[in-house]
């Protein structure tokens, strides 16, 4: 190789392996999309009258039926209870499992893996499906909804809490251990102060999500504002449905404002 050849180096941003895996990713995405688009079953007859149906929906929603506001608000308060108590129970269960999942707190691969499996199971089963299961156990009502929210949230809160624990600075933990602190003291005085801001913001974030989620649980009979929605919808009172939707929208926006304020002020 002459000097000029050596100097004529082709600069490339990615290595061959990187390029190949990127192309493989693009190819797989396009293939998955094309196959899905070609095989999904769509009934075209339903599509023709979609604009009429939509216009019909809107004219039936207007004017709003404000007499439905009273039952809506009662149900809304129940939804708030479900979201808050459910988040509390979820955090209560997620913290011990999170401790088991964090590699630095529990240095045992099988236990970590087991805890992670619990998290994946909790997250993959949807809140509505959890609600179905708990309605079968506890009967219809907000109790089933609360349990559904709690079990559904374990995965999210636990996974993020375990990640926060794993990011803890090991120096202070080592110092505590060297001073002869027990395992419990190390947890309380070493890990907890470091994970605390993350913990509160995870709990708040999940509470915000749970308000949205608990608004639909009533569709399968698990209490909350979803019951009011389901009742109005099955009676085809779309003007009442609109009131419920408006109430949900208001409370979701309010929760988001609360969470952002608390987060910037306190955490």
């Amino acid at each position: 190789m002459t000097v000029t050849e050596a100097l004529h180096h082709d600069w490339q941003r990615f290595t061959l392996a990187q390029k190949l895996s990127r192309y493989a990713f693009y190819l797989a995405s396009v293939a998955a999309l094309v196959i899905s688009l070609r095989t999904i079953e769509v009934i075209p007859e339903f599509l023709y009258d979609a604009p009429t149906q939509m216009a019909d929906l809107i004219t039936r929603m207007w004017p709003l039926d404000w007499t439905y506001l009273q039952p809506t608000l009662t149900a809304l308060i129940e939804t708030l209870h479900i979201a808050t108590v459910g988040t509390f129970l979820a955090v209560l269960m997620a913290v011990p499992i999170g401790l088991l999942a964090a590699r630095n707190v529990t240095p045992s691969a099988p236990i970590n893996l087991f805890a992670k499996f619990v998290f994946v199971t909790s997250r993959s089963v949807n809140s509505l499906i959890w609600a179905l299961l708990f309605v079968a156990v506890f009967g219809p009502g907000p109790l089933a909804g609360t349990m559904a929210i709690a079990f559904r949230s374990i995965g999210f809160t636990g996974k993020l809490f375990a990640e926060a624990l794993e990011e803890a600075n090991m120096g202070s933990i080592e110092a505590l251990t060297a001073s002869g602190a027990s395992r419990f003291s190390t947890l309380l005085m070493g890990y907890w102060p470091q994970a605390r801001p993350a913990f509160w913001s995870i709990a708040l974030f999940r509470w915000d999500i749970n308000i949205r989620e608990s608004a639909v649980l009533g569709l399968v009979g698990a209490g909350g504002i979803g019951v009011a929605l389901e009742t109005a919808m099955s009676l085809l009172y779309w003007d009442q449905v609109a009131v419920v939707l408006l109430a949900i929208f208001a409370v979701v926006v309010l929760a988001e404002i609360i969470v952002t304020t608390v987060r910037t002020r306190l955490i």
Binding site: I40, V42, F46, L57, L219, M233, L245
Partner: peptide, 21 residues
């Protein structure tokens, strides 16, 4: 973002009928 996908799905089921779409 403010409505749960299920609620949006209910509206779309009304507008474009049952099914995957």
């Amino acid at each position: 973002r403010s409505f749960h996908p299920i609620i949006v799905a209910i509206i779309f089921v009304k507008a474009i009928g049952f099914g995957a779409l």
